[in-house]
Computed example of a mutant assay.
Amino acid sequence: MAKTKVYFWLKVDKKFFDNIFIKRLKNMPGGYTMTVIYIRLMLESLESDCVLYYEGYFNDLAEELALKLDVSEDDIRMTLSYFTQCGLIQVDSDSNAEMPQAKAMLESETNWAWYKREQRKQAKLDNVQNKKKKSNSCPTEIELEKEIEIDIEKEIESEERDREKISASAEISKYYQSRIGVIDGVQYQQLMDYHTQDKLELDLIKLAIDKAADNGKRSFGYVNTILKNWTQNGIKTAAQQKEEQQRYIADKGHAQKTVNITDPFGGNLG
């Protein structure tokens, strides 16, 4: 039996080069080289779930990557340093480097999936052609092609929705790192579950991260508690949370006025 192969690739479009961190490299010495190396690092990570693992053969990850990519160690170090500061590379305590943007741009397909895709296209073509033979009002060749294109477009739309989910996960991961710190795989999945399963909008998740950071509570547990409370209270958008906060403040003010009027020991009866 032929071995199943999996093909990976990056879907790079204009938006990649519109990224402010990529655009800034244009005006930096060695910026072009760093951009190319960054893309190569993403490609290198594709078969290992977008993580560059430090294997321990040399002093650090930079030395290993320099050998693998056949580029200078200095260029690798500059690239790792710059993109780590930007949040586009996340290095954990074991010196492994995760590439969140690569996850957002990742495309993959097995040779079997490609075969089944082509098989579905051919089945659709055969089906329409059979109808054409049996019907006096059979579709023209142009109509036939349109029907096939519509089916393909539906598949593309479905794949696009999947890519949007991946893009959202990269956005949240990057935002968490910029405000709280390094996030591990389990924590990352919990945050995404709030978005994909509990249907919390991205801005609301970011707001929870902001509240934790602004209060000096730089821990995942604090962020998770906020999101859990909002979920239990049916809050799914930043706008709903703002309304809830305003209602709480108004109710608190009303309660305070009531206490001042009725408390015989407060010295303030109106």
Rank of each mutant, 00 (worst) to 15 (best):
M1L: 07
T4W: 09
V6Y: 12
W9T: 05
K11C: 02
F17T: 06
K23V: 00
N27A: 09
M28P: 03
M28A: 09
T33H: 08
T33G: 00
V36W: 02
V36K: 10
L43E: 15
L46R: 11
S48K: 12
Y54A: 01
E55F: 01
G56M: 04
D60Q: 03
E64A: 00
E64R: 01
K68M: 01
L69T: 06
V71E: 13
S72D: 12
S72F: 01
I76E: 13
M78I: 02
F83I: 06
T84S: 10
Q85H: 06
L88P: 01
I89P: 03
I89R: 04
Q90P: 01
S93Y: 01
S93K: 10
S95Q: 14
A97R: 05
E98A: 14
P100N: 06
Q101H: 13
L106H: 10
S108R: 10
E109P: 00
T110F: 04
A113R: 15
E118S: 05
Q119C: 06
K121P: 01
Q129Y: 08
N130G: 02
K134V: 11
N136M: 05
N136T: 07
E143Q: 15
E143C: 09
K146R: 14
E147N: 03
E147P: 00
E153S: 07
E160D: 13
R161I: 03
R163C: 04
K165L: 12
S167A: 14
A168N: 11
A168Q: 06
Y188M: 07
Y188E: 08
M192Y: 09
D193R: 11
H195T: 00
H195F: 05
Q197V: 10
L200F: 04
E201L: 01
L204P: 10
D210M: 03
D210Y: 03
A213S: 15
N215E: 15
G216F: 10
G221Q: 04
V223E: 03
N224M: 08
I226F: 13
K228W: 08
W230G: 09
T231L: 02
K236W: 02
K236Y: 10
K236I: 07
A238S: 14
A238G: 05
K242S: 14
E243Y: 06
Q246W: 01
A255D: 11
P264G: 02
P264L: 02
F265G: 08
F265W: 09
G270Q: 05
G270D: 09
